[in-house]
Design a binder for these strands. Structure first.
Lengths: 375, 375
DNA sequence: CTGAAAGCGCTTACAG
DNA sequence: CTGAAAGCGCTTACAG
């Protein structure tokens, strides 16, 4: 059996460049075995070797006034040579900046891992954070309100510089909580209330227009909408805007509340298609339900798109790879994530402008939508 | 225009319980406007109010000896009342414990967001971290070696207590690097070298047996394997073990190296199926390629499973929801993530036993596999 | 331009 | 059982 001690003993074997210098020259022997690796290089080390004060080192490293160019360069060179990286806890403690943003997602784990939405959002956020050398502290809680605890705890603990919030609910308690805690927040939002928190806004009206214009052109006059749960603000808005837009274009819409789950999408679609007067097109609130709709149609012998068109609100690999491919709106999820992170850092930095429009979506027309059947 | 200042001014409006007490009693006026919220409660505050020392407060909060039960209770009660949470930077700085583990994934963003594997793994890890009140620091870098920088930086910065590594390569540079840095590591691994880092091991032999036993029973004697890139250790092992096991059972296997990408899976499958002597079954290294294989077969008019069986190494919603459903091995990804996090925390805690077996996989038989065609 | 010193909020020997 | 004090590794006024 190997012990952590032997792990540390083995350090010499690595042939790595940075830190390889003589960082260990002063105290290569670690303290208590297993406590983890060689002593880290600190600004005190740099100061001592360069015969200057810690303050000067700090100024030099942070690009602040207070040191000559020459001194600064000597500091930077030595830091590079020794592989110095400032202890993040010390920086956080003295400067109250963590270079970390927090995301807490309170959804059913099964859904989180099935829908590509979250991962694509995270990828987008990460792309931005990489560029500005910040990090993401992530927590996936269940759906039972533990998320509030985590938000509160992380705020009080000073673990993050701010939060990005998803899945806004009616009277979402997270927003007053974080406002009270005084933590910068950006809500990835579908509406634009003036509640003085950061919001990256993408109104559903855009998607509504893309979907309904497409369907109207194809001659559909009688459609159905299987939404996600109405507890989400964006679902309420989708229903309302879809209805209004459809009214204006003389299209009838029946709304059914779904749960985003496959089974549910299947069941609700079945009911619609076996109705004596079925709709000629169904818009589903997410990719999973759209796929379910596709399957049920096939199962019932209802031809897609000849007898019914199937469209999804939110594009994804599932829509793209389904057979037939499902017409959907590419919500630019990665770009949206990126933009949210960017906005949060600006809000945290004191930027007065809290609201911003998200990048526009685009319709991806595939085989699942076609002309309305004439009957 | 709203300003961060006005954001802070608005704090009173929240009606939240914790911290609502009289935490602001001493200095409700924030410092510089916009710097974020009311002053946090610290152990000094607790000590002052209870007329005891900071040390006693610390002992009480951490459940250590050094305070009477009565004092401890008074401290805990007050902490609860004021919504006290220890500043994580201060704890990290003085105790060198961050309660955070790091994960750096260096893969093509498109792949990360398409394959459910990573998200399911993260969910599993999170489930465990939730229970032990730890957090995940996540970074998704591209495939260009920036991951080494991040690992080095996070280590030197003392940001994490350890790392979980995925996607081990040949002579993976991350392992010597982290050993040299002296940071606890767990590699989610497919083999068991004695290299003194933590390893959660799941040998491919298990999956090989599940797949080949199934195919042998169905009468297949001539199969193909479209793998992922051989740069991954697990892919090399899969090929070797598949070959050995097939040899023993008198099954011929041709191996083709794929990339995990849909297009690639399609192209390689096309070649196999248009061969004058096509295999009767194809095992694909991931779900995307398996789906591609299914599509190509359909396109070529090759019936699945009557003329060719399609199986995937790794189950996923894509396999489950495909039509026909794709037979695949459920690798227990969430459980594996959980186990990896658990092992890492134990390794970091000084546990001598570095290696552990991952939970076993299970075959999910679906419509894409059937008896070998007689010809 | 540079240094000595206080402070961020904890933990932890060390005396009482 | 309790308190005074040093220390973790930085940053930041404040004097020179």
């Amino acid at each position: 059996m190997t012990t952590p001690g032997s792990l540390a003993d083995d350090e010499r074997s690595g042939g790595d460049r940075a830190g390889g210098g003589n960082a260990g020259g002063e105290s290569a022997e670690d303290g208590p075995a297993g406590s983890g690796g060689r002593r880290r290089v600190t600004i005190s080390d740099l100061a001592r070797r360069l015969h200057i004060s810690k303050a000067s080192v700090s100024y030099a490293l942070n690009g602040r006034a207070g040191v000559s160019e020459e001194t600064r360069q000597r500091v930077l060179d030595l830091a590079e040579e020794l592989g110095f990286h400032p202890n993040s806890a010390a920086v956080a403690l003295s400067a109250s900046r963590t270079r970390t943003i927090g995301i807490v997602i309170a959804r059913d784990p099964a859904l989180i891992s099935t829908e590509a939405f979250y991962m694509r959002t995270l990828v987008g956020i990460e792309q931005y954070l990489n560029e500005v050398d910040s990090s993401l502290l992530l927590r996936l809680t269940g759906e039972h309100g533990e998320d509030l605890d985590v938000l509160r705890r992380w705020s009080r603990q000073g673990r993050v510089d701010g939060f990005i919030l998803f899945d806004e609910h009616d009277d979402d308690p997270r927003i007053p909580l974080l406002k009270e805690l005084g933590v910068p927040v950006v809500v990835v939002s579908s509406n634009d209330p003036d509640d003085e928190v950061g919001r990256l806004i993408s109104s559903p009206i855009e998607t509504v227009a893309l979907l309904l214009d497409h369907l109207a052109e194809l001659g559909h006059r009688d459609i159905a909408h299987i939404s996600g749960p109405f507890t989400f603000v964006h679902e309420q808005l989708r229903v309302r805007m879809l209805q209004e837009y459809a009214d204006r274009r003389g299209i009838a819409v029946r709304h059914v509340e779904g749960s985003y789950r496959y089974d549910d999408g299947a069941e609700l679609t079945r009911r619609l298609l076996t109705d004596p007067n079925p709709p000629t097109a169904i818009v589903l609130g997410n990719d999973l339900m759209a796929l379910a709709a596709l399957r049920v149609a096939t199962e019932l012998g209802t031809k897609v798109p000849d007898e019914v068109s199937i469209l999804a609100w939110d594009d994804s690999p599932l829509c793209e790879l389904a057979g037939p491919g499902i017409t959907a709106v590419d919500q630019k999820t990665m770009e949206r994530g990126r933009a949210a992170a960017d906005l949060l850092l600006r809000v945290a930095g004191g930027e007065p402008d809290l609201h911003e429009e998200a990048p526009a979506g685009e319709l991806r027309v595939r085989e699942s939508s076609g002309p309305a059947p004439k009957n």
